[in-house]
Design a protein around this nucleic acid. Structure first.
Length: 281
DNA sequence: CGCGCAACCTGTCTGC
DNA sequence: TGCAGACAGGTTGCGC
């Protein structure tokens, strides 16, 4: 569900509203949300702290608190982080975590499938290893060049689709934007990542960026549960070129879009634009 | 270390 | 209609 564009949308919305405010109260309603940590301990670590900034790394959303303390959250499949104005009554059965903010507004972590997580990390020297051990380069950073992509893919025998989903290779790309990027690059999802030619790497680099940027421009994709911090849907699902368009015509050549399974995930492609890799053996 | 897959959890859709 | 099974956008841990 929430991939880089969706998390970035939430970050941009929340930044002006919560930066500078104090957390008056923190409530972990589902112990699974912060397991294996003790919910009461997590609540105590957050209570009374001022929020200095809100950041993102890959699909992680990070509240930077005073005193170099960080609340690192992940929405996983069905998580939403909602900003609720004071006096707005909300009774959501899937509420897992809540921050009451100075002034009466609140942040509410709502998550049907309960995969979403939150963890408190103390000190920049702890935060960076936490993130960097899990995440590869940020695909929208200036420093993410075709050469970086090529070195990340070098030697990989796994299908390029699996490669794009591996967060320690490239941060923030999920199932939706992997399909969109591969279509833009005209690369078959089952092509081994390490066997991409230089021109294919160039196209994939551009495809990743264009797909993610389109997602951000459209405020994310709301196929199912995803909502932004206002509870509103994004519109990227209306701009999909290939994802979830099985049986429809390819926007480039008109051939019928097919669905296959790659890296264990539903994967959509144009059989004419994205030619199957040559079978070895 | 690389890779594939089951598991985590709940709701919804599909096919018999 | 009812129900079992598959599937859903993510990540982790385990086995090979």
């Amino acid at each position: 569900m929430p991939e880089l564009p969706e998390v970035e949308t939430i970050r941009r919305q929340l930044a002006p509203r919560v930066a500078g405010t104090v957390i008056e109260d923190a409530e972990v309603l589902d112990p699974l949300w912060c397991s294996p940590a003790d919910p009461a301990a997590v609540e105590a670590q957050l209570r009374g702290r001022r929020i200095e900034a809100i950041g993102r790394r890959g699909k992680y959303l990070i509240l930077a608190l005073e005193g170099e303390r960080f609340l690192v959250m992940h929405l996983r499949m069905t998580g939403n982080l909602l900003w609720i104005a004071r006096d707005d009554a909300v009774n959501n059965p899937y509420l897992r975590f809540r921050l009451a903010l100075e002034g009466g507004d609140s942040l509410q972590f709502v998550d049907l499938r309960r995969f979403g997580t939150g963890v408190v990390v103390d000190g920049r020297e702890s935060l960076d290893p936490y993130l960097d051990s899990r995440l590869g380069p940020e695909p929208l950073d200036q420093s993410f060049t075709p050469d970086v992509l090529r070195s990340q893919a070098a030697g990989r025998k796994a299908p390029v689709k699996a490669f794009l989903l591996a967060q320690d290779r490239i941060a923030g790309v999920g199932n939706i934007y992997a399909d969109e990027a591969l279509f833009r690059a005209r690369i078959h999802p089952l092509k081994p990542a390490g066997r991409l030619r230089r021109d294919q790497i160039e196209r994939l680099h551009q495809g990743i960026r264009e797909a993610l940027e389109a997602g951000i421009e459209s405020f994310g994709a709301s196929i199912d549960r995803y909502r932004d911090s206002n509870g509103a849907r994004g519109s990227m699902q209306d701009r999909f070129l290939i994802h979830r368009r099985e049986g429809k015509p390819c926007p480039r050549c008109g051939a019928t879009i097919v669905k296959i399974r790659a890296a264990g995930r539903g994967t959509y492609l144009c059989p004419r634009c994205q030619r199957a890799p040559a079978r070895s053996a």
